[in-house]
Design a protein around this nucleic acid. Structure first.
Lengths: 149, 149
DNA sequence: AAGAAAACCTATTGATTTACTATGTTAAGT
DNA sequence: ACTTAACATAGTAAATCAATAGGTTTTCTT
């Protein structure tokens, strides 16, 4: 599957915000940019999209930055992905002009089954789930290092 | 989900070939083009891709055209889609340079779950399955027409 | 043998999308 | 006031997409 950098970086950014705002301080674009090695100016263009979808709130001025609008448990990946690019989880839009019943059959039995699954799955996965698994894999990595030393 | 016209038309074409070669005669690009309302010259560029993947065989000259290389029961949509565009069912390739564990966590717990499902599902679905459902929906449509007359 | 029909092959092109960069403006804290 | 950081909008180079175009080769029919 191909995913645009907008979606890719947007997801990384909101996870970064969730992790680094846990002590309630706002997370700046600059700090995300440094940590995740993503162009700050490009991020500055992506984050407003998540803000418009009411997933994050931007705080201007010094000590400003971004915070989540809701607890990470209440933000699903379906919301995040839909905000960044509505086509990713949408049903396939067919350019074909033909009213061909073949097109309907393919949509019903192939593409829509896939996008249905993607929507359901991404709806069941929250930001909190991913953060939890992120910490677990960090933990495991450091255990492995200790083991091999 | 966004699908290129190459994939869209390629799938329509191989189904059209499967349906219209059932009496063992080759199906011409021109006839597919007419039935499905797709540019013949463009199809002429797409069908060789399916031929190179050994899903169809091209027969030159008069009375020529395309036929399936194998029975429709033995051709899966995973094969068809992979032939037309390998990226559709592939794991997400991340451009991000960051070695960030966040990227790994997203891949493992979000994208790869989706592409795993898509690969498994499309592998379980054959050309024959779709043709069967195509005929059923044609049948149902004509029943409906009779009912409403 | 000639002609027609059809696949085969390769190049080109216009339009759209992508992935940024650049330049400022506004608002908030110190 | 000064600094910091989000906000807003414009521009652009490169890549991809969706075809179109023109010619070549192979096979069947007459």
């Amino acid at each position: 599957m191909k995913i645009s950098t907008k979606v890719e970086f947007g997801i990384i950014a909101i996870i970064d915000i969730a992790i680094n705002s846990e002590n309630n301080n706002a997370v700046t674009v600059y700090s995300i940019s440094k940590r995740q090695n993503i162009s700050g100016k490009y991020l500055e263009q992506i984050l407003p999209v998540l803000r418009q979808a009411h997933l994050i709130r931007g705080l201007k001025g010094s000590k400003g930055g971004y915070v989540l609008t809701r607890p990470a448990e209440d933000i699903t990946f379906k919301e995040i992905i839909n905000a960044l690019d509505i086509t990713v989880l949408s049903n396939v839009y067919f350019s074909s002009q033909s009213e061909s019943e073949i097109v309907n059959t393919i949509n019903d039995n192939l593409w829509n089954k896939m996008t249905d699954y993607m929507r359901n799955f991404s709806e069941s996965l929250t930001l909190a789930d991913i953060i939890e698994r992120y910490y677990k894999s960090i933990e495991q990595n450091s255990e492995q290092i200790m083991y091999y030393i």
